[in-house]
Design a protein around this nucleic acid. Structure first.
Length: 845
RNA sequence: GCGGACGUGGCGGAAUGGUAGACGCUGGGGACUUAAAAUCCUCUGCCGAUGGCGUGCGGGUUCGAGUCCCGCCGUCCGCACCA
């Protein structure tokens, strides 16, 4: 009689065995082919959530599968441990960011261990520890030495109450998210990394990333935003000049005005005039949200200046305009209303000429009477020497002439900006620079690294604790020995996550990584994480890798050859169906834990006093604290065991799509785990082959392998269900015993605890984690009989089971002999017969 | 506005241009049981049912379209006055 699988006991036992034997520690010196599987490391926010469980389960299946197929696998885990939430916790709860973070790490590590992930914990790292960030400081200084770091004055969002800099996301309706104070723009000296120096490489490199989702490549491409065109100068009526950038030099004869940004030096120079000053102020008022920009009216202020057209010398009015951005291109444009919608809107409002220069079909009249700008292809008209050219030729010709005559040049403009990395915050990597009155900015010498973040700080006063620390920032200048001050800013935490995958591969004490060892593991073969990191994190990591190559520290171009962006874990939302409920705001959301199912399936909320209240079931959304629709993984693991949770995470939904958490789903997974156990714990020792089962087994081995490699876990799961059913139904035989034996290995990547328990139960000495993936007998992948579809006029009318590989004539004859076909054809011969061997016959009557 | 993805039973989803709905969930019926749980068997797209209709809608290509092409509609995501 089969026993029941005791998940909790098995989980604890095998986790301990893996730990003690260091089963998943990666060997740098292994002769096996190396495979680096990585999931985005977590921020230690407190507890793990279902999103983590799903993410790490996917990576784990791949890592375990790779081990079984003979790879030396690096599958590490660490902590993205610097960041604002720790400081927020410090301010709210009076705890120290370091203590809070390290306690969270301990909690979350224990939780991850309970899921049985095949992780190399010997390489665990936390970015908040000096033995990590010290090396990051060394890298920063290498970049500095190579001229990839510079200092620039730049505007930040300043919260005058909290005395801190805010990220854009923390500014809500122009106010600080915490203090509610009106946010000011403040100019601060900040450090920048020259990511734009690599813009071309980062763009071109995208085409080599075949195993990245197209979507992510496209998002990066748009973010980098390469535009090619012409940069040229207009002479102004006051004797000055204004430089503009355009991607449409071909339309130059359609220009009817020039516009500059409110921040442009020309506008600023005129700001002595109160009317100009008022207009500039008005431009800056506008909101920055999508909706506001969309509906914002184009506004202009005529400066009275004119700009001379570079070919005709014709004067064009110069406006200050709210739709021109100072930080893109040159901060000035020329307006071609007929062929740019913004210019069209602007010209319409200010009654400026609208002149067609690109013919749309046969429309070539200089008077432009369309309702909107024409931006499509066409032939140049009303443009002197450009007439008759197509757009591309005309662009080239204008650039050629501008360069020949010396008033402009072909140029490339990027949307990508240099990366400002200074943060006026405490809980981050200190920037290893000393400011000396005599020597200026002085890098901290290598032997003085790490610049350790002091932990004796308080958060009872607003502002950066580093700045008001009594001693920390006072230091002797490394250059002259005089009194100097440390930079009290810390690095953007995106810097921490821009090279951690290299440190995982190699972690010597005295330098960031050993080049040869790191190169033996990198690039990461499969990187898995949320699509929310599609742009910034992945772009910064790509930049860091290229910058490290630039300074000669590593010879790797792209850090991640394979990228997979997994979907979120979602759940229904519940709200109290009481419009007049007078509880605190937000309390209307009800946690799934407090939901009971009433009669006829109605959902009710159980209130604190035991009463039940009807709720409305809202849409299925990403699990979030604000909607209270989270499911804490820990009690689920307690109840069902790690394997059932893992199995559910892989079932049903394709991994790139969202997975809806459901009670039925986890119960189904748990039932399957028990079903598997009954099989492995069942009878064996029978004789004889079962050809059909052999074939099913080998097809499943091949299919599951292919599905895992394609990360199509839901399909692998479906195939394993099918095989399980087939084995259950099969009569005892040696084939059936073989199938059960192989199945233990097939499910091992997904339900490793059950697999180890079964492997051991069936008398194997080693671990199933170290066992090889079952071999496929290719001969068994082919069926000897096939079901052939018989269609008449493309409609299915019958199916026939025939031997595989029959000649066309035999298949056709069999089809024509089918009773149903005979009845439908009523004695007539078909006009045409299409035979697809081993598949179908289509008779066209 | 620009770019992208997606749209298949009651639900999640399968399906190299070739038998639509694998597999799971839900639900119905049955077996076992004093009973329940667990387990097992069985059915489960729709309809006027020897047949017909079905993959968001309308066209097209093809012997054959969920799949390819054109045009709509809807949902979701990203970017956004980028010159």
């Amino acid at each position: 009689m089969a026993s029941r699988f005791n998940a909790l006991k098995a989980d604890a036992h095998w986790q301990q065995v893996w730990d003690e034997r260091r089963t998943f520690a990666a060997d740098d010196h292994s002769a096996k082919p190396k495979s680096y599987v990585l999931e985005m490391f977590p921020y230690p926010s407190g507890k793990i959530h279902m999103g983590h469980v799903r993410n790490y389960t996917m990576g784990d299946v791949l890592a375990r599968y790779r081990r079984m197929t003979g790879h030396e696998v690096l599958h590490p885990m660490g902590w993205d441990a610097f960041g604002m939430p720790a400081e927020n916790a410090a301010m709210e709860k009076g705890v120290h960011p370091g203590g809070w973070t390290r306690a969270n790490i301990a909690t979350m590590k224990a939780q991850l261990k309970r899921l049985g992930f095949a992780l190399d914990w010997t390489r665990e790292l936390a970015t908040c520890e000096p033995d990590y960030y010290g090396h990051e400081q060394a890298i920063f200084l290498e970049f500095y030495k190579a001229g990839l770091v510079y200092r620039k004055e730049s505007a930040v969002n300043w919260d005058p109450v909290d005395m801190t800099v805010l990220a854009n996301e923390q500014v809500i309706d122009g106010r600080g998210w915490r203090s509610g104070a009106l946010v000011e723009k403040r100019k601060l000296n900040q450090w920048f990394l020259k990511i734009t120096q690599f813009a071309d490489e980062l763009l071109d490199g995208l085409s080599t990333l075949e195993h990245w989702p197209d979507k992510v490549r496209l998002m990066q491409e748009n973010w980098i935003g390469k535009s090619q065109g012409l940069t040229f100068r207009f002479r102004l009526s006051d004797g000055g000049e204004v430089e503009v950038f355009t991607t449409r030099p071909d339309t130059i004869f359609g220009a009817s005005f020039v516009a500059v940004a409110a921040d442009h030096p020309i506008a600023q120079a005129l700001a002595g005039d109160p009317a100009v000053a008022a207009f500039i102020a008005r431009c800056k008022q506008g909101g920055t949200t999508a909706a506001e920009i969309e509906t914002q009216e184009k506004l202009g202020f005529d400066t009275g200046l004119t700009a001379a057209h570079p070919f005709s010398g014709h004067p064009l009015p110069v406006y200050i305009a709210n739709f021109v951005l100072m930080d893109y291109g040159t901060g000035a444009v020329f307006g071609v209303p007929a062929h740019d919608q913004r210019d069209f809107d602007f010209a319409t409002k200010y009654s400026l000429p609208i002149r067609r220069v690109v013919a749309e079909g046969d429309k070539a009249d200089p008077a432009f009477d369309e309702a909107e700008a024409y931006t499509g292809p066409g032939t140049l008209v009303n443009s002197h020497f450009l007439d008759g050219m197509d757009v591309a030729d005309a662009k080239r010709e204008v650039i050629r002439r501008a360069e020949a005559d010396g008033w402009g040049r072909g140029s490339t403009v990027w949307r990508l900006r240099d990366w400002g990395v200074s943060r006026q915050r405490y809980w981050g990597t200190p920037i290893p620079i000393v400011h000396c009155a005599a020597c200026g900015e002085v890098p901290v010498p290598r032997e003085q690294l790490p610049v350790v973040l002091p932990e004796d700080v308080t958060f009872d006063v607003p502002g950066n604790p580093l700045d008001r620390h009594p001693t920390w920032k006072h230091v002797a200048c490394p250059s002259c020995g005089g009194e100097a001050l440390r930079d009290t800013d810390t690095l953007d935490t995106f810097a921490d996550s821009s090279w951690y995958f290299i440190r995982f591969a190699s972690q010597p004490q005295d330098r960031p990584f050993d080049r040869a060892v790191a190169e033996s593991w990198l690039p990461v073969g499969q990187y898995i994480g949320g699509v929310e990191h599609a742009i910034l994190h992945l772009l910064y990591a790509r930049f860091f890798t290229r910058a490290l190559r630039h300074v000669g520290m590593i010879d790797v171009a792209e850090p991640f050859t394979g990228l997979f962006t997994q979907g979120m874990v979602t759940h229904e939302t519940y709200r109290l169906a009481l419009p007049d409920y007078d509880g605190p705001r937000g309390a209307l959301w009800v946690s799934p834990d407090d939901i009971v199912v009433g009669e006829n399936g109605q959902r009710l909320a159980r209130m604190a006093d035991g009463a039940t209240v009807p709720v409305t079931v809202g849409r299925v959304e990403k699990m979030s604290k604000s909607k209270k629709n989270t499911i804490d993984p820990e009690p689920i693991v307690d109840q069902y065991g790690a394997d059932a949770v893992r199995w559910f995470m892989l079932s049903d939904s394709p991994p790139e799509r969202d997975l809806e958490w459901s009670e039925n789903g986890i119960e189904g997974a748990w039932r399957f785990v028990q079903r598997l156990w009954r099989l492995v714990d069942g009878e064996r020792g029978s004789e004889g082959r079962d050809a059909a089962l052999d074939r099913k087994l080998h097809q499943t081995i091949a299919g599951v392998a292919a599905d895992i490699e394609a990360l199509s876990f839901n399909k692998a799961v479906a195939k394993l269900y099918e095989l399980t059913s087939a084995v259950e139904k099969a009569a005892p035989s040696a084939s059936r015993d073989d199938a059960v034996e192989a199945m233990i290995r097939l499910v091992a990547p997904m339900v490793p605890h059950l697999a180890e328990e079964a492997w051991s139960l069936r008398g194997h000495a080693g671990l199933v984690a170290d066992a090889p993936w079952p071999a496929v007998d290719a001969a068994l992948l082919v069926e000897d009989e096939v079901t052939i579809a018989i269609q008449v006029n493309g409609k299915l009318r019958d199916t026939l089971v025939l031997a595989k590989g029959l000649p066309r004539e035999a298949i056709e004859a069999a089809a024509l002999a089918s009773d149903k076909v005979v009845r439908l054809l009523e004695g007539r011969a078909p006009k045409k017969v299409i035979v697809v061997p081993d598949r179908l016959v289509n008779l066209v009557a």
